[in-house]
Design a protein around this nucleic acid. Structure first.
Lengths: 202, 202
DNA sequence: TAAATAAGTGAACCTATGTTCATTTTATTA
DNA sequence: TAATAAAATGAACATAGGTTCACTTATTTA
């Protein structure tokens, strides 16, 4: 008589939700938030537009979830790489290397975080800023540690940390948008050296 | 009998068009392109919404004109400062200093170019990329010149130029968004030193 | 197999905003 | 001042796309 959701179905729903998110990530990577319609996401996920709303309360909830997930993924990746080393200079390097590796592997993530999200709206930008600030904060902590150890003469560790992160950001963005530099891994070396000199590594 | 537009009126129209652009710059600086309505621009410019369309064919034409104007203004400012010096290191410094001075003076310009424009749409982003690329190109030219003179050992001048510009961009953006660093002029010094070390100034 | 309920569908609805246009106001000229 | 035409107005229009909902299909249980 009654009906209760069985495990098989629950798993199917989970899988479908994953499908929708995956489809949405693809679409959002190539089109701005405004230009991306629920219809196009539904099409790519092979569901009806109405079905979308069984899984997400609305469009904004979807992009929120996507960005939150990416944020977590990125942070997890960075932190796990940082744990493998102890030296603060190596931590700096590990953070950025983890970031670049992840972006190469998940280009759609990079495109969404660095290129598309800034266009959602002003309120949403706060979330992006939060991600960037987290990365800058990590960098600044490393610099302050190095400063204490007398291995970094740096004047202003916040501005230095911003310069550090900003230089990577610019190169990655150009790589995403224009495919230049072609070899991001190679550029990483140049960038790392540039920034270590910039910091005045002793 | 007939009627022909007199000079007094032509001037008035010019002034009004300027008013509209000025109003729009203010509004666009605080709200994203999508969030900015023609109504709100018209209100600020003290005209009726319909009047807007006597001066601009549509909303996109307006933002296009605004960004083009800003692009010209920025480039003019940079080039005039560059002409005052001959040394390539000084040219590098002059470019960024001109940029920062202009952004401090015209904060709404900075907000529109660096924060709001990326959110218009993907097609429009090409225009922003063009501006950035122009600045990177100038920087790269300076670096290549320094390289020839044997004053810059730099491996990859394109990546170095990106790092250079990106570090400034990050700091300016944070200043615009969060008011940090508080004193952008002071940060400029730190940044300049950072980048000169980064380049490996000999 | 039939009743019960969950999941899925896509056309229709709703709303927000860019744009238009019939009308009014302002400026020019004879 | 009257005729003419440009400039300004703002309510009305158009439409695009997010969201809803009456209906269909799929799944579970007795």
């Amino acid at each position: 008589m009654a009906y209760r959701q069985t495990n098989k179905v629950k798993e199917k729903l989970e899988r479908k939700k994953g499908d929708i998110i995956r489809a949405a990530r693809e679409v959002f990577a190539e089109n701005s938030y405004q230009e991306t319609s629920i219809k196009s996401i539904a099409q790519k996920a092979k569901i009806a537009t109405g079905t979308f709303y069984l899984y997400f309360s609305n469009k904004e909830a979807l992009i929120n979830m996507i960005v939150d997930e990416m944020f977590q993924e990125l942070l997890k990746c960075i932190k796990s790489e940082r744990e493998k080393v102890t030296d603060s200079f190596e931590k700096l390097q590990a953070s950025m290397e983890a970031c670049i590796r992840l972006f190469i592997k998940e280009k759609s993530m990079a495109k969404i975080l660095l290129i598309q999200v800034p266009g959602v709206n002003n309120a949403f930008n706060a979330k992006l800023t939060e991600i960037e600030n987290e990365l800058i904060k990590l960098t600044k902590e490393d610099l302050d540690e190095l400063k204490e150890e007398g291995r970094f003469p740096g004047e202003d560790s916040l501005v230095s940390a911003m310069a550090f992160v900003g230089s990577f950001r610019q190169v990655i963005t150009s790589w995403l948008r224009e495919g230049q530099p072609e070899d991001l891994e190679k550029a990483f070396d140049t960038l790392m050296k540039y920034n270590l000199r910039g910091l005045g590594k002793l």
